[in-house]
Simulated scan of single mutants.
Amino acid sequence: MNTNTVRRPELRWMLDDVLLPEVRSAVVLARDGLVITATGEIDEADADRFAACLASLRASSAASAEFCADGSTSEPAWNQTLVELSTGYVFLIAAGPHAYLGVSTTKQVDMGPATQRFHAVVQKLGAELGTIPRSGDSERS
């Protein structure tokens, strides 16, 4: 099956620290919604769909930045989005230049330690997760 998915299995190791028992899947994606790598209970087609949803979620979340502006000349940068559903959560976190970490969990996840772990992975590996902007991308994350 030929898809637009960018697979970098050599980077899958960076998601090991994210895979708590309550984590269903984790996806590292580029700003344009292409999968860089994925792991957990997710196949290639679902990873592509999840990444596309996450890219859209990031864009719509970032569009709300103007409503949090503090009057300075620069618009606030988007950092993360959390979606709560009746059966779980979706975490979306900036993970480097034009790269993002998306994680889906069950409702039983302990949010505090899970969020700390996700952010630790992002901090530790942010430079490695970065992607080169594709044509048409602005410098804003």
Rank of each mutant, 00 (worst) to 15 (best):
N2V: 11
N2M: 03
N4A: 11
N4V: 05
T5C: 06
V6F: 08
V6W: 11
R7C: 01
R8W: 04
R8S: 14
R8Q: 15
P9Y: 03
P9V: 02
L11N: 12
L11Y: 12
W13G: 05
W13F: 14
W13E: 05
M14S: 11
D16Y: 03
D17H: 04
D17K: 10
D17M: 10
L20E: 11
P21R: 00
E22R: 03
A26V: 08
V27G: 09
V27I: 15
V28I: 14
L29M: 10
L29R: 03
A30P: 01
R31L: 06
R31Y: 04
G33T: 06
L34F: 13
V35L: 11
V35F: 09
I36P: 01
I36G: 04
I36M: 13
T37D: 07
T37M: 05
T39D: 13
T39W: 03
T39G: 09
G40N: 12
D43S: 06
A45Q: 07
A45P: 00
D46F: 00
F50A: 12
A52R: 02
A52V: 08
L54E: 04
L54H: 02
R58L: 07
R58C: 09
S60C: 14
S61F: 03
S61L: 11
S61G: 15
A62L: 07
A63S: 12
S64D: 09
D70F: 02
T73S: 12
S74D: 14
E75V: 12
P76V: 04
P76K: 07
A77R: 06
A77T: 05
T81C: 12
L82W: 12
L82K: 10
L82D: 10
V83Q: 14
L85G: 15
S86K: 13
T87Y: 05
T87S: 12
T87V: 03
G88E: 11
G88H: 07
Y89R: 15
L92V: 09
L92T: 07
I93H: 10
A94H: 08
G96W: 03
A99Q: 07
V103Y: 01
V103G: 02
V103I: 14
S104A: 15
T105M: 07
T106L: 14
T106G: 13
K107F: 10
V109L: 02
V109N: 04
D110W: 00
G112D: 11
G112W: 02
A114F: 06
Q116S: 13
F118A: 01
F118P: 01
V121Y: 02
Q123P: 00
Q123V: 09
K124C: 01
K124L: 08
G126K: 10
G126I: 04
A127D: 15
A127H: 05
L129C: 07
G130Y: 04
I132C: 05
I132L: 12
R134Y: 04
R134A: 14
R134S: 11
S138V: 05
E139Q: 07
